[in-house]
Amino acid sequence: MQMRNLLIASSAAFFLASAAHSEPSVKLGIGRTATEAEIAGWNIDVDRTGTNLPPGKGSVGLGREVFDQQCAACHGSKGEGGVGDKLVGGQGTLATPNPVKTVGSYWPYATTLFDYIRRAMPHPSPQSLSNEEVYAVTAYVLHLNGLLPDNAALDAKTLPAIRMPNRDNFVGDPRPDVK
């Protein structure tokens, strides 16, 4: 019985692997190619250099207000964590037996924070914040981590210029097709 089950599982795995790497032989006649405008509406990711950052500007002060309204219920009033992840602290813990991975201790690029907030937050209604609010919340979280002064503001030019404390502690991708 075990041999039969193993043979069935192996056959199924081979079939699925073969199907995943082959071109579909039948056109089903459903769907259509997305338009450039449709693709642009979903193409909102921001890379580590800041490519694709939108226009707008947000201050630490505005970020504090938006954070209190939209983020504190999950992440705590000062980013200390709760239902959601801890966002602050952890500096100096990464090489210890109990590392605390937060925005300020672990993340290598500030633009990644902006990208994540913009696409995935706030939890109950992602992508509901304006660009100004996303810049502001990003500024506030960076401020809570001691990386920006209280009077700072961020935009597409200043955000990529922030040097995160853990930036140089990641291993590069050795694959030859990755630059």
Rank of each mutant, 00 (worst) to 15 (best):
P176K: 14
F170R: 06
A161I: 03
Y135L: 02
D45H: 10
G84R: 06
K86I: 13
N169A: 09
E38F: 07
M3W: 11
H143D: 05
R175L: 12
K57M: 12
P55W: 05
W107D: 07
E132V: 03
E132H: 09
N52P: 11
E23I: 13
L159M: 08
Q2E: 13
D85F: 07
I39P: 03
Y140D: 04
L113T: 15
D115S: 09
S11H: 06
A13C: 12
S25T: 13
D173R: 09
P97V: 08
E36C: 00
S10W: 08
A156R: 15
A13D: 06
A13N: 07
N5K: 06
P160C: 10
P176C: 04
T33P: 00
N98E: 15
L62E: 11
G89V: 01
S125F: 02
T111R: 01
S128Q: 04
S18G: 11
R118Y: 10
D177P: 00
V103Q: 04
V60P: 07
P165N: 01
P24C: 00
L7F: 12
E80S: 06
Q70N: 12
K57Q: 14
V46M: 02
K157T: 15
V88K: 03
G31E: 06
A34W: 11
S59D: 05
R163C: 01
G146V: 05
R32F: 06
S128N: 02
P174S: 12
T49A: 14
Q2L: 13
G50N: 12
T102Y: 05
S128C: 02
I8L: 14
Q91C: 01
K101R: 15
Y109L: 01
L113Y: 04
A72L: 06
Q69I: 01
K57S: 15
A136P: 10
N43K: 11
V60E: 05
L7R: 12
R32Q: 14
A73E: 03
V141N: 11
A72Q: 05
P97S: 09
W107T: 07
K86G: 03
G58P: 05
F15L: 15
D168L: 10
A153F: 10
L113I: 15
S18H: 10
V137A: 04
D45W: 02
K78N: 11
G41E: 10
K86D: 02
K27P: 02
A161R: 13
S22I: 06
Q2D: 13
V171W: 07
T93R: 08
I44C: 00
N5G: 02
